[in-house]
């Protein structure tokens, strides 16, 4: 039996894709890191340098600090928390010898999107589309009930600070959201992720709050003192404008509503893909998707306000034949 297990482990697992920035940052000198935590389709790893990254089944999408593995191979990653993992030319589990080879993996980078053509109306429309798909949760835990009020208050405070255009106020308000909420990625963090990724798109007037958001996330006490390790990693990437591919897809879909809008009337073409993208974001985690959407909606509304001054002509409406 052990011979069989050995043979089994001997065949390396080829990664499907890898975050290009992560690939450049991973140590290759054979030092040992650890398995940080294990979930159904994700194994989080801590590199010897302390960087948190993960292996995930390719049923999930590309994301920062993520190595995707074909779902068919996922069963072979039988790794457990605190197991040692060697970071050499490949990732090797120190006990069972399972090896994940990154060499042939497709490098991933989030797709850029230029939002400059979007009118305030289109932005508000998109915010409304997001809003419509924000389901009221069927059931909330007592902790969520307790934290929801705080979340609402602090989100409003952040919006006011952004409208007021005072960087220190934005930093202070955003910092008050970090780590707020029950789960593995607290709601406040998810909300900031949605907002930060949108703000980082090309052509966003909101781009000017990015230094303040980064300060709120990176500039205070160490982030892992303020939120969970997984969320800290996600948030650090988000203020750099990087997040799960489907969040970028949503921004891309948003841009396409604008293109279709100028070409052939409101919403023709792009709208359906926007709804699709919204639903896909909503499907992230249990409540995370909805929290990210809340951040995106906030960003869209704020952006519409900021662009009001340079308002473009309203798009034409479709002909009503009857």
């Amino acid at each position: 039996m052990t011979a069989t297990a050995g043979e089994h482990a001997g065949r390396p697992v080829d990664a499907v894709s890898v975050d290009a920035r992560l690939a450049a940052a991973l140590p290759i000198d054979g030092r040992t890191g650890t398995v940080h935590s294990v979930h159904a389709r994700v194994v989080n790893l801590r590199t010897p340098d302390g960087l948190l990254c993960c292996l995930a089944s390719d049923e999930l999408d590309d994301a920062p600090r993520t190595v995707l593995i074909a779902a068919a191979d996922w069963g072979r990653i039988g790794w457990h928390r605190d197991d040692p993992v060697r970071f050499g030319p490949a990732l090797t589990h120190a006990y069972d010898g399972t090896t994940v080879v990154l060499a042939g993996a497709t490098p991933w980078q989030p797709s850029p999107a230029d939002t400059s053509a979007l009118t305030p109306d289109l932005l508000r429309h998109a915010a409304a589309t997001v809003e419509r798909h924000l389901l009221t949760p069927a059931h909330r835990t007592p902790f969520e009930v307790a934290s929801a009020d705080e979340l609402g208050r602090r989100t409003t405070a952040l919006a006011d600070a952004i409208r007021g255009d005072a960087a220190t106020a934005v930093t202070a308000a955003a910092a008050r959201l970090v780590g707020l909420g029950a789960g593995l990625t607290p709601s406040g963090d998810d909300l900031l992720t949605g907002l930060a990724v949108l703000a980082a798109a090309d052509g966003m007037a909101l781009g000017r709050i990015r230094p303040a958001l980064a300060e709120a996330v990176l500039g205070h006490a160490p982030l892992e003192e303020r939120t969970t390790a997984v969320s800290a990693a996600t948030l650090t990437e988000a203020v750099a404008g990087r997040a799960r591919q489907r969040i970028h897809d949503l921004v891309t879909a948003l841009v396409s509503t604008g293109e279709a809008g100028t070409a052939g009337g409101v919403g023709s073409g792009g709208r359906s893909s926007l709804v699709d993208a919204v639903l896909r974001v909503r499907a992230i985690g249990h409540t995370s998707g909805a929290d990210i959407l809340t951040g995106l909606r906030l960003g869209l509304t704020l952006e519409a306000d900021l662009r009001e001054a340079n308002r473009l002509a309203a798009p034409t409406h479709p002909k009503e034949n009857s």
Binding site: P142, A146, E150, G179, G181, A182, G188, T228
Partner: peptide, 17 residues
């Protein structure tokens, strides 16, 4: 009442509240 959550500073504040 059973409250479960990760022990971030903000969540501790929520419990305090």
């Amino acid at each position: 009442r059973a409250l479960l959550g990760m022990a971030t500073p903000m969540n501790k504040e929520v419990l305090l509240n």
